[in-house]
């Protein structure tokens, strides 16, 4: 287990936390290009949980678990919100959505991680990154 944490933060404080987590991941031997992907996915997922999941309610926590296995990293994030319709998200890459200010977070997680699953109506997500691809 690399991280097992209850978080109460404002969205703008997330990058600083992610930076601390990345140091731990780097020390565990994860490569730079993989660290970029993990950084992006962690920032997007945690900010979504605080902003959209917990609706910026500072009394509500977000739970973060990061487990490193032999060939993969598993990240679980859980918020205390009502969930969301994760099966019908608008595709940000279609022409009409390209200029939209929001709606790219989950899409970026899907693209930069190898697996993303939602549970409990969207309040909980599990994402996986394989660490030895291409070796």
């Amino acid at each position: 287990m690399i991280v097992d944490k209850e978080i109460k933060l404002f969205p703008q404080e997330v990058p600083q936390l992610v930076e601390k987590i990345l140091k731990k991941l780097k020390n565990s031997g994860i490569k730079e290009d993989v660290l970029f992907d993990l950084k992006l996915a962690l920032n997007e997922a945690l900010i979504n949980a605080i902003k959209h999941g917990n609706n910026l309610d500072s009394r509500k926590s977000v739970f973060l678990k990061i487990i490193k296995k032999k060939d993969k990293l598993e990240i679980c994030i859980e918020d205390k919100g009502k969930g969301f319709d994760h099966k019908n998200l608008k595709l940000p890459t279609v022409k009409n959505n390209l200029t939209k200010q929001s709606g790219r977070g989950v899409f970026l997680i899907k693209k930069f991680m190898d697996k993303l699953d939602f549970f409990e109506g969207g309040c909980k997500l599990k994402m996986i990154k394989y660490l030895n691809k291409g070796e």
């Binding site: 970029f36 950084k39 992006l40 920032n43 997007e44 900010i47 200029t99 939209k100 200010q101 929001s102 790219r104 977070g105 970026l108």
Partner: peptide, 16 residues
């Protein structure tokens, strides 16, 4: 070194 979705949104805003 890094940009996230809020950074992209800021650039889109400037472009518009």
């Amino acid at each position: 070194a890094y940009i996230d979705s809020s950074g992209l949104a800021t650039l889109i805003e400037l472009l518009q």
